[in-house]
Design a binder for these strands. Structure first.
Lengths: 225, 225
DNA sequence: GCTCCTTTGTTGGAATTCCAACATACAGTA
DNA sequence: TACTGTATGTTGGAATTCCAACAAAGGAGC
């Protein structure tokens, strides 16, 4: 287990926990270590949603089958990443997704009830863990909300402007660098890359923005006299 | 304060808390009661994001100004509803939104640090409060994820099918009632109501679905021999 | 310099969506 | 019953988007 301490210490879930505390903590949480062979499942859809998973080595994929059985990959979780936390914390009775290990992997499974129940001995890092969990889910919440706001307009132009204004506010300035290339931005907004590229050209010609590569600048619309 | 106990007891944040515990709990949390006059702000954008708010009477609106100052209402929170929790729990330094009371309102403000720090006296309902908070945010998380999944396809038909298959899985059956009328569904998917209505007609003619009003049924695609 | 490869911009036709307007169906009420 | 208002379905033209294919602009490595 100690071999994975470095992974855990860099996992946001254990932020603020020291190496010394980690041992006590893991004992208190009574986690299971699962060695998953290549292709084998970690969770199966329909199982009780009780565990928060931490990837220690390898990778896991979160998998969803739709009503007709078509399978799609919702997420790939690298070492240090966590999965299943939203389902466990939301109190779902059964998992709506499966989790599989496409390569031989090691995961730590923490019983959510154990995590969320204060332990009998006053264990200060336990509170810390809960706070980290909450913070991670809340941050994801804000990310999802932002994405929905950017996807909601019906035209590509409006989607772009919504995204760019959002970035401008986040960077507190009209000039900023976005964390996407064109293809990734198009995927994020749910539009065609080529159409988006054309729309960016129009916005530039219209004098609303300047951009080169990932650097953007919003220009003030013409002030009315 | 006691006049608001019924509101609080029905607030998901205080689920599982008894009327007797409520008093002790509120004292422990040291919440502020704020009486907001009509049109007056509860939070201002840029303030530290430290409070979770609970609406006790009236309503509050969560307001966002974009980069150019255009204002939009993100949410209207009725009595018993909470607001600001995601910002506070995500650890944002400053609020990216404002909150105003469009009508005379009363809100309870809880310092998030106080909520998330275990109190010195072992206070069992404190843990309960944190779990409720976490559960609420996690559930919103799943809702947002679902919505993004339904909005992501590029065509109205695929959006509809994604939504309907999702509902079918949730109801664990091919027949189900959706919680939207046509206009609300179109807004949810981010498409035009008329175009969506037309697409529903095509899906019906293609033998993929049956529907009347809010009742839908997914039909099995023709089995291959 | 050169090639190879990736990223970004451009273009044209097909398909889709929007938009506004109207038709139909249905519930509630006088 | 007739009237009214709302929800839903339908239609046609304008506008937008998709899609595939190609052109242009860099960057890495030789």
């Amino acid at each position: 287990m100690e071999q994975y301490y470095d992974i855990l210490l860099h996992c946001p879930l254990f932020d603020g926990i020291t190496r010394q505390e980690l041992g006590t903590m893991l004992a208190c949480l009574d986690g299971n270590i699962l060695e998953a062979a290549k292709g084998s499942p970690v969770f199966l859809e329909g199982e009780p949603a009780r565990y928060v998973g931490v990837v220690l080595s390898g990778t896991v994929q979160v998998i969803r089958d739709d009503f007709y059985g078509n399978r799609s990959v919702l997420a790939a979780v690298p070492p240090g990443g966590i999965f299943g936390e939203a389902f466990a914390c939301a109190g779902l009775e059964t998992l709506p997704v499966s989790v599989v290990a496409p390569v031989p992997s090691t995961v730590l499974l923490l019983d959510c009830r154990r995590v969320l129940t204060g332990c009998s001995q006053a264990c200060s890092f336990h509170i810390r863990l809960i706070r980290n969990l909450l913070q991670g889910i809340a941050q994801k919440n804000l990310m999802l909300t932002r994405k929905i706001r950017c996807m909601s307009p019906k035209t590509t132009r409006e989607k772009l402007m919504t995204f760019l204004m959002d970035q401008a506010k986040q960077h507190a300035g009209a000039e900023f660098v976005i964390p996407f290339d064109r293809q990734a931005l198009a995927d994020y907004l749910g539009v065609e890359r080529s159409a988006m590229s054309a729309e960016l050209g129009k916005l530039r010609k219209a004098g609303l923005i300047e951009c080169s590569g990932s650097r953007f600048r919003l220009l003030n619309p013409i002030a009315e006299p």
